[in-house]
Design a binder for these strands. Structure first.
Length: 340
DNA sequence: AATCCGTACAACCGCCTGGTT
DNA sequence: TAACCAGGCGGTTGTACGGAT
């Protein structure tokens, strides 16, 4: 009676995986590779959907997964990258070897986010909450925002350039394979151009960064050089990989001269600096160090927390520059997977 | 001992993207 | 060009667990 159940849907199992299921999945993938995830469950004898198998493998069973407590360095990396990339967990995960995006996401949502919130920092914007307008921290938070915008744009531009470069290479290869190509051969593949100024110029997002008045523009805001700022060369005089973001409000006295002299040196000897990034003081470490406990903010001689933060975080230009270089190296390392 | 509550994390769901037909 | 599919991604939920009451 009734129709045949030959086409009836097999009830797929949900919920936690059992040890037996794990073993079946592991054994199958070790022997055959995963192949098509959709067809895998039937072949492996699992009553799960392919998607569930894929998630179980990528987030739990894969042999190259590191589990357990996140190190301080990993925490710092997550916070820094989150400030730049937002909730792009897969992109963040490419810079944390052996950690999965799911694990990082969970760690952020259950720990780091709360820690930042407790400290009065908005985990979404990475800016201090309820800070009096016009305060030093507020200015520096704004500065961080500029940095983040630039860096995000840079990463996007890198990805775009990478894709275009690949397309060009493929096109050249195809042409060469069929007819004699009139196209010039592709340039030797250099690391993706980091000159966000040039890249941004080439996009529809912004027409220019440096106008004739020395105004520096980002997609959402404008930075102005102070009157006593050294004259700024045109974009074309920068070497690739150079991003120079000088902000009047960012140069808070200490190290200002040093910063400008370094910029000057950078202009005059661009070949010596092709991997550098020079920026103003950023706010990022203000909570970064505190969150990770690398700096005891209370041990300073200053009276207020704000001063402690200022001093501990923004007092040394070299440190700040190194921080950004470190971060740049992190996100641009050719040995790592691309962010996008 | 029972219950409540917060935390951590595995897993699911819905949407998006890129490739193929 | 549209439809379909596989895989990837991020948001959210479900559940186990431990500590507090």
């Amino acid at each position: 009676m009734g129709r045949s159940n030959s086409h009836a849907k097999v009830e797929l199992k949900k919920g936690p995986w059992t040890r037996e299921e794990d073993q079946k999945l592991l054994a199958y993938i070790e022997e055959h590779g995963h192949g098509s995830w959709r067809s895998l469950p039937a072949k492996a004898g699992l009553q799960r959907c392919g998607k569930s198998c894929r998630l179980r493998w990528t987030n739990y069973l894969r042999p190259d997964i590191k589990r357990g407590k996140f190190s301080t360095q990993e925490e710092k990396t997550i916070i820094r990258l989150h400030a730049l990339l937002g909730n792009r967990w897969s992109a963040i995960a490419t810079h944390l070897p052996k950690r999965t995006d799911n694990e990082i996401k969970n760690y952020w949502n259950t720990r780091l986010k709360k820690r930042l919130t407790r400290m009065g920092i908005d985990p979404t914007t990475h800016k201090p909450k309820n800070n009096p307008s016009g305060s030093t921290l507020s200015k520096q938070a704004a500065n961080l925002s500029h940095m983040a915008q630039w860096e995000t744009a840079r990463l996007e531009a890198e990805a775009r350039l990478g894709r275009e470069s690949k397309l060009l290479s493929n096109l050249h290869f195809l042409r060469k394979a069929t007819v004699q190509s009139p196209l010039p051969p592709p340039q030797p593949t250099a690391p993706p151009c980091l000159d966000v100024l040039k890249v941004w110029q080439a996009t529809s997002r912004a027409n220019c960064f440096f106008g004739s008045t020395g105004t520096l523009q980002s997609p959402t805001s404008t930075l102005n050089f102070s009157d006593n700022t050294p004259s700024v060369p045109t974009v074309s005089s920068f070497m690739a990989n150079d991003v120079i973001a000088l902000d009047n409000s960012a140069a808070y006295g200490v190290g200002k001269e040093k910063m400008y002299s370094e910029v000057k040196d950078k202009m005059e000897n661009p070949m010596h600096h092709h991997d550098d990034i020079i920026i103003g003081y950023s706010t990022m470490d203000a909570y970064d160090y505190d969150v990770t406990g690398s700096v005891d903010l209370t041990s300073d001689n200053h009276n207020s927390d704000v001063h402690n933060v200022d001093s501990a975080v923004f007092g040394d230009f070299e440190e700040t520059k190194n921080y950004w270089n470190e971060l740049l190296n992190l996100v641009t390392s050719p040995l790592e997977s691309p962010v996008f």
